[in-house]
């Protein structure tokens, strides 16, 4: 039973962080049809920036986190303005190729500035283990779970209630119609990229807090793909549920069936689910009126 609780909590934590990274990915795909291969690097940059803020600049973690988010938003806007806006009107596949180039570029920038060796992270969230129902779990994981949950809940409200959030979903549905009601599509794209970069950066900070910083953090970004395909590429709730499912599955298989298998089983489940729901669990079906 303790093992089960422990696995569940660990799974939920890594799932929630995955969901944060996936949220940005879904947002970009939804509003502009672009698959952003640089999402993992956004996470990497977030982790390193907060690392620099805390160790090299010696800031308190609250300032550090706020500054990291600011840097990420800046990065998102910059990428949109410099890399993507000139690509408007080009085929989507070229834009996707550009994001692959972008991911190499960002990775190279990070290793030029901070080097390639993994470094320990000064934990800004206390990591003393706590006892929950008999299971011992690191406090940092619980905090990561809480932070991710609050953020995801907040974004969900943003997309359902706020005018800007609804406008973003409207652009995803029909760009020209959105344009006809005065919604600036350029501005919405900038929003999407900066929110994507910011959520990924927060995810990066949370992961770094648990495992330290290193270039392999960007691989975390690769795990976003099964999450979004499972949840549905264009669904925000799908990103959250998909993240949690993948996170939990990895932990359960790792704990009960042995290490190694946990890398494989999530993909097996992914294939099975796609066989029954090709749009993903929550993906938007194409609406056809008959």
């Amino acid at each position: 039973m303790e093992l089960f609780i422990q696995l569940t909590l660990t799974g939920l934590t890594s799932g929630a962080i995955l969901a944060l990274a996936a949220l940005g990915f879904v947002l970009i795909y939804k509003s502009s049809d672009v698959i952003n291969f640089a999402q993992g690097e956004f996470l990497l940059i977030g982790a390193y920036v907060i690392f620099a803020m805390l160790t090299q600049a010696g800031l308190h973690w609250t300032f550090g986190l706020v500054l990291t988010i600011a840097v990420a938003v800046g990065l998102g806007v910059m990428v949109e303005r410099l890399v993507l806006r000139p690509m408007i009107g080009e085929p989507i596949i070229s834009v996707i190729m550009v994001t692959i180039g972008l991911s190499s570029l960002l990775k190279a920038i990070v290793s030029t500035i901070w080097g390639n060796t993994p470094q320990a992270f000064p934990p800004f969230i206390p990591s003393e283990p706590v006892n929950i129902l008999g299971a011992t779990v690191g406090q940092d994981r619980l905090w990561a779970l809480v932070i991710a949950a609050v953020l995801l809940g907040g974004f969900n409200l943003f997309f359902r209630r706020s005018r800007e959030g609804i406008a973003m979903r409207a652009v995803a549905d029909d760009q020209q119609a959105a344009l006809s009601m005065g919604i600036s599509v350029k501005r919405i794209f900038a929003w999407a990229w900066s929110i994507a970069a910011a959520t990924a950066a927060i995810g990066g900070a949370l992961v770094a807090n648990i495992v330290g910083v290193g270039p392999e953090l960007s691989h975390f970004g690769l795990r976003v793909f099964p999450v979004v395909i499972l949840g549905g590429l264009d669904s925000i709730p799908g990103a959250i549920v998909g993240g949690l499912i993948i996170g939990l599955l990895e932990q359960y298989t790792g704990g009960y069936l042995g290490q190694g298998l946990n890398q494989v089983l999530p993909f097996v489940v992914l294939i099975v689910i796609l066989m029954f729901r090709p749009y993903g669990l929550f993906g938007q079906e194409i609406i056809e009126r008959v």
């Binding site: 979903r169 409207a170 995803a172 549905d173 119609a177 959105a178 006809s180 938007q284 609406i287």
Partner: peptide
Amino acid sequence: RVFEHLTVEE
């Protein structure tokens, strides 16, 4: 050209 996946009110 309604936004198909949004509700009427949205």
